[in-house]
């Protein structure tokens, strides 16, 4: 489903080159629920932005659903984001001027979907996250947990092949985080592929598989000497 091979991402200035990702390798199979963990600045979010085609990469290869994406132009990348990827952001990223219904509708409009089908999908997605009755509410009228559920509904409405979640419970209290996580698990059980970036060990533990990123590389914690120097990470990578 998602395969990165020797992938590199370099930020260049006139005087310095900074490797955000270096020789980064990952292979996520269809239907997997993978948690990507690592300390701050390790490159987790860079990985997610590249995986979601929000950013380009500097070297290596990236195959998404069998398509090598490095040669795709901006329009093609937009189309893949729209049709194959669902995003769940830490800050929810709902559009404050649109009500819940219109927010969920945004990606479907860009797909050029007919109005009747859009409406059906939106209501199905809102039913699934338990917010159908809040369709006419604006984001500011909802709790953080409800906003994240709307964001999940927006991600699900387009029936994506891959769900990318960036610290999906990072802005929520424990109870709301738990309910969002349960929703993600339910979505996964129904067959969705989920890649979730988090530094929350409890959250990571709920995933099928953990991938650890340190200094822009995927590492095996058991063998990496840096892991032994940072024993507190053990809990994050059970």
């Amino acid at each position: 489903m998602l395969k990165m091979t020797h992938l590199a991402k370099v930020y260049r200035t006139e005087v310095v080159e900074t490797y955000a990702l270096r020789d980064f390798n990952i292979n996520v199979k269809e239907g997997e629920f993978v948690a990507v963990t690592g300390p701050s600045g390790s490159g987790k979010t860079t990985f997610l932005t590249i995986a979601g085609l929000l950013e380009t990469f500097t070297g290596g290869e990236y195959h998404l659903d069998g398509v090598e994406v490095s040669k795709l132009d901006d329009n093609a990348r937009s189309r893949i984001r729209n049709e194959k990827i669902g995003f769940i952001f830490q800050a929810f990223n709902l559009i404050p001027d649109l009500n819940v219904f219109d927010n969920v509708e945004v990606p479907l409009r860009y797909r050029g979907m007919k109005s009747a089908e859009r409406k059906q999908r939106i209501m199905d997605a809102l039913e699934r996250v338990g917010l159908a009755s809040r369709a006419k509410h604006y984001p500011a009228e909802l709790s953080g947990g409800q906003q994240q559920r709307v964001a999940i509904a927006r991600a699900l409405a387009g029936s994506p092949r891959l769900l990318l979640a960036d610290e999906p419970t990072g802005n929520l209290d424990t109870q709301m985080a738990r309910s969002v996580l349960e929703l993600l698990e339910e979505i996964h059980r129904e067959g969705a592929t989920i890649v979730m970036v988090t530094h929350d060990p409890e959250l990571a533990a709920r995933a099928q598989r953990n991938v650890h990123v340190i200094d822009g590389q995927v590492v095996d914690l058991a063998e990496d000497p840096r892991f032994h120097a940072n024993a507190h990470l053990v809990g994050a990578n059970s």
Binding site: D74, S78, R79, R81, E83, F89, I95, G158
Partner: peptide, 14 residues
């Protein structure tokens, strides 16, 4: 600006 980025992330073309 953020909202535009979100729209782009959700599939809006330029």
């Amino acid at each position: 600006r953020r909202q535009i980025g979100v729209r782009r992330a959700l599939g809006a073309r330029r």
